Amino acid sequence: MTGSGEPPDDAADGRRRAAGAARTVAGLARACHPGPAAAVTALVTALVAVAGWGPAGTALTALAVLTGQLSVGWCNDAVDAARDAAAGRTAKPIVAGLVSARTVRVAAFAALAACVPLSLACGVVAGATHLLAVAAAWVYNVWLKGTAASWAPYAAGFGAVPVFVTAGTPGDALPAWWAVLAAALLGCAAHLANVLPDIETDVATGVRGWPQRLGPARVRVLLPLPLLGASALLVAAPPGPAGPVRWLALAGVAACAAAGLLLGRRVPVAPFAAAIAAAGIDVLLLAATPGVVTAG
């Protein structure tokens, strides 16, 4: 054994350092909001693959979007650390003591620094569009989250997706107006669904964004509307007859919206899960409709 005046045992010290590093990695993994980060990365990557970016472009997009989402998630938890602690949100890794707010903040800026060259490597227009979407998310985290305009960064970020996708296709085609509007509506739905479970604690800690001002009951009723509106645009607006596939997709989104509405009170994550499922159906709808993504 090591005496009180002797240096600590090297093996024990190594184990403590390894355990601390493991806690930090686990904390960072949880603080990045892994569910939304993975979902957004997968959806955008699927869209560029369908649009014909090719394997290299698709892989580059996945890395650019992933680093952007990591930066946004870590920024969110770092900015909200004091508020989360005041609300007793022990599920948050910073509050739980797994990782420090400073470490999460450093990780956010590191991911943002990696996102810039990865995004620009996708093309100047596509890269600038993606960076503007990431910037909108950061503005939400540090400013607009507590204002009535909290929906705007979500609408801008999601609405930028069709612009990003089409900018990387041959000929730099512009997205159709209805594709941009549908994506922006999905962004508004994602905002409502993401905030819904935390509205009461947000209000208690002084957050007064758009959903908090509406209240949980109104948000649950409102949430299906942008989901259905986005899907209706993707079904009815593309040229040519809608066909059974588009109508089936709309029915699927309606089912997701209904499930989120009915289960929202008992299962707090149900509305967000329903919004992600609806967005996934819309991605499949885009894939099944020739020319939707690259329409001018």
Score class of each variant (00 low, 15 high):
M1R: 11
T2E: 01
S4T: 13
P7I: 11
D9V: 00
A11S: 09
D13L: 13
G14C: 00
G14S: 06
R17V: 01
A18Y: 12
G20S: 14
G20A: 15
A22W: 07
R23V: 00
A26F: 00
G27W: 10
L28Q: 03
L28H: 04
A37G: 06
A37L: 07
V40G: 07
T41L: 15
A42F: 10
A42E: 09
L43K: 14
A46T: 01
A46N: 06
V50C: 06
A51V: 00
A51W: 02
G52C: 05
W53D: 04
W53E: 06
G54H: 09
T58P: 07
A62R: 09
A64L: 08
T67K: 08
Q69G: 13
L70A: 04
V72K: 03
V72I: 12
W74C: 07
C75W: 10
V79G: 05
A81T: 00
A82P: 00
R83F: 05
A85L: 04
A86R: 15
P93I: 01
P93V: 02
V95D: 11
V99M: 00
T103V: 03
R105E: 03
R105S: 09
A110E: 01
A114I: 03
V116T: 09
V116F: 01
S119W: 05
G123E: 09
G123D: 08
V125F: 15
T129H: 05
L131T: 04
L131W: 11
V134E: 04
V134S: 02
A137N: 10
V139M: 12
Y140D: 11
G146A: 15
T147Y: 06
A148G: 13
A155I: 01
A156C: 07
G159I: 05
G159L: 06
V163A: 15
V163T: 13
T166M: 07
P170D: 06
G171N: 14
G171A: 07
D172F: 15
P175M: 12
L181E: 05
L181F: 08
A182T: 11
A184F: 07
L185K: 12
L185A: 12
L186F: 15
A193C: 12
A193Q: 13
L196S: 06
T201D: 11
V203C: 11
T205K: 11
R208G: 06
A217V: 01
V221E: 12
L223E: 15
L223P: 00
P224Q: 07
L225C: 09
P226V: 08
L227G: 09
L228W: 11
L234S: 02
A237R: 03
A237L: 06
P239M: 02
G243V: 02
P244D: 09
L250I: 00
A255C: 13
C256S: 14
A257G: 15
A258Y: 03
R265A: 11
F272P: 02
A273D: 10
A275P: 02
A275K: 02
A277S: 13
A278V: 01
G280S: 03
D282W: 15
L284G: 15
L285W: 10
A287Y: 08
T289Q: 15
P290S: 13
G291K: 10
V292R: 15
A295C: 10
